[in-house]
């Protein structure tokens, strides 16, 4: 846990309001992740290439999925909330394989 005081910035002039000022990295830096060595998410990019919606890209609250120029999906498992949004919104069965991280690993909420 890092005390994230001040990351919001004090400027009231930020376009779109004062709260748009926080970067996604700063947002995620408020969350503790005990990152395990095993990736608990796997993505079959061959399946993703045929996907037209790529809903995981916008819906994932941790912003872990990014489209590649070849039409596939790049992903990062390290800062995952383990919510399950990605596999639930996925159109293509088998594209996203999702398990829990190993015991004691992964997100640790202190204020949940």
């Amino acid at each position: 846990m890092s005390a994230a005081g001040g990351v919001l910035g004090s400027g009231h002039e930020v376009p779109g309001g004062i709260w748009r000022g926080i970067s996604f990295e700063d947002r995620m830096s408020t969350v503790e992740f005990r990152v395990g060595e095993r990736a608990h998410i796997t993505v079959d990019s061959d399946v993703c290439r045929s996907c037209t919606t790529k809903a995981c890209v916008t819906a994932c609250p941790a912003n872990l999925f990014a489209p590649t120029s070849e039409g596939g999906i790049l992903f990062n498992y390290e800062e995952c909330f383990e919510c399950g949004t990605c596999y639930m919104v996925c159109n293509h069965e088998g594209a996203i394989t999702w398990t829990y991280p190993d015991g004691g690993q992964g997100v640790v909420f202190h204020q949940g």
């Binding site: 005081g5 700063d26 969350v31 909330f81 909420f109």
Partner: peptide
């Protein structure tokens, strides 16, 4: 100021 961000289904 933001102390913790979280998400859950």
């Amino acid at each position: 100021t933001l102390r913790e961000y979280a998400a859950h289904l």
